[in-house]
Design a protein around this nucleic acid. Structure first.
Lengths: 314, 314
DNA sequence: ACGATGGGCTAATACGATTAAGTAGTTATG
DNA sequence: CATAACTACTTAATCGTATTAGCCCATCGT
């Protein structure tokens, strides 16, 4: 800026006023033109570090995620967050906690948060795999923070979560409306809270429909395609074979398709299958197309950042 | 730092020397302890903005990607880049160019690069979908930059690309070694340079094996699962049905599985199928498991950052 | 003719750190 | 005993910017 000022024959202050379009600073048009010409001929660029130091504002938001990044829908959350940040003229500094696949310890989280705070991020979005109890690292208290797809223990932090229960009920209702009376649930062991919420929704929907729960089966396995295959095999070879399978996710649903095929059962003629998550590589391309529940991950990511940036913060 | 200094009864400079562990600064142990105690009791954190300004160093690397982010392997590249950055004590500032799905124009790229340069990134990794001609934005010349999965026109910038040709030859050789003599190639229209490279590798491999190319067919379609289904149907219903299909990617290969199933053909008894990209949601979970070529995207991302940070830059 | 007004610009300062150079006070050296 | 050398600090300059108070000069009103 000093160089630009020198070249344009004005003071550095004037350059600042011109290049920032400061309203009411009364710089004449001719000077403005001279300054801008000098700036562009010298290839001047603002220095965000200096500006940030002076203005006490980094225009940056931290986005911290645990191993959620490996899941197919994490990308959607990040994109939502990025879009919201950009709309507000901010940038996202994304940190993953499971960088080389090692498990996450509290220290890693604290360290990552420290790094974000040192960069004076204006807020932190902490996207954690939605387990029942999230231990909220201390550092988050030092800056506006929201939890994404997670909930803090005592609700100390605002958190954005999908309506797992509602979505699951909708899925099961869909099957009930289609006339199914024996619906199995293929799921995985507890851990992510979604597991319990979806199973509860399944049970509630069935019992509200007046069905005898003893006749309905929950098969627990691994939440992958091969896991779905195995659990579907188990479910479909029971007496009183279910006519519909409600799967924990699309991967399991894909395995269920394979199991049905193996058993010579047609989908949806012999067995209906409903998935979860709307994984784009799976749901729309299975034959026949898989019915699935999409959770609004993009919107959640967006909302998280909007919440962090909301003017009426707490 | 001033506050810490005051509390510890020393000068601000001393605080800096202590907290940065400056070698040979000869601060007594007792003073060090006093300073650290004061710092932690006040909850002091370094200010990366101020430090960056003073040191002319942002410890940040820009990662710019065009719509590549939506592809399944982009995540791997980002993770590789992030791991390499972290290993060097740097952070990654990730910017996507197709934020809301709108197409990318040169302006968007220039703008994004400007933003990175204003933040004084120490280098830029430009990950572009590998089309034949990448127009390298001017701004990249102002800082260490490398292209990832892309090549500049006149090789003005270092670029990291996978060995598409070699990988494809390996895939086809695999089929030839297994005894196949009629191998079809399911691919997509030109655009990404990988399309042409893989097709050339396919032709070269076949002709070097002494096969008459007239008997071999390239089916062009859409590079998705349904697209793979359609093109596989075409290929598998020709006279002289091919005994093997070499697919442009795993999505198409999945479609080919479906087509084979529809036609009552067994995989791999009646037709062998080879995919590309090793998409984790597809390749390992198809039944039977899909043979596929993994390109080293993680390693490429890592290498890109290491290259940007290499001490012996150009 | 002269104070008032206001347009157009500058000087000075602060943001929070790093670091070269300097300064007491103490100990070693010739 | 004077000087050199070392220890343990401090002073002050600097990084690039934003911003406020103030300055100079031309014009205006009376």
């Amino acid at each position: 800026m000093k160089d630009v000022a020198h070249k344009a024959g004005v003071s550095q202050a004037t350059v600042s006023l011109v290049l920032n379009d400061v309203a009411g600073s009364g710089i004449s048009d001719s000077t403005q033109i001279r300054v801008r010409a000098a700036a562009s001929s010298l290839g001047y660029r603002h220095n965000a570090l200096a500006r940030g130091l002076k203005l006490q504002r980094s225009d940056t938001i931290g986005f911290l995620s645990d191993h959620i990044t490996t899941t197919p829908y994490a990308v959607a959350m990040v994109r939502g967050a990025q879009d919201a940040a950009r709309a507000a003229g901010k940038h996202l500094l994304i940190l993953n906690l499971d960088l080389d696949g090692t498990s996450i310890d509290a220290d890693a989280a604290d360290l990552a948060i420290s790094e974000l705070l040192e960069r004076r991020v204006e807020g932190i979005v902490y996207a954690a795999m939605f387990h029942s109890a999230v231990q909220v690292p201390d550092g988050l208290g030092e800056v506006r923070s929201v939890l994404l797809d997670a909930q803090s223990h005592g609700a100390e932090l605002p958190s954005i979560v999908p309506d797992e229960y509602g979505a699951a009920r909708q899925a099961v209702s869909h099957l009930l409306d289609a006339g199914h009376r024996r619906i199995a649930h293929l799921t995985r062991p507890s851990g992510p809270i979604a597991v319990d919420l979806r199973e509860r929704a399944y049970r509630d929907a069935l019992s509200e429909a007046g069905l005898d729960l003893d006749d309905q089966h929950v098969e627990v396995g691994v939440d992958t395609t091969p896991g779905g295959f195995d659990t579907a095999m188990k479910a479909l070879t029971r007496n009183h074979r279910p006519t519909a399978l409600f799967c924990f996710n699309d991967q399991m649903a894909m395995g269920a398709y394979q199991a049905a095929d193996e058993l010579g059962l047609g989908v949806p003629d012999d067995v209906s299958i409903v998935g979860f998550d709307d994984v784009s590589l799976i749901a729309p391309v299975l034959r026949p197309q898989l019915t699935t529940m999409r959770l609004p991950h993009y919107e959640m990511g967006k909302l998280a950042v909007e919440c962090v940036l909301a003017p009426e913060w707490i």
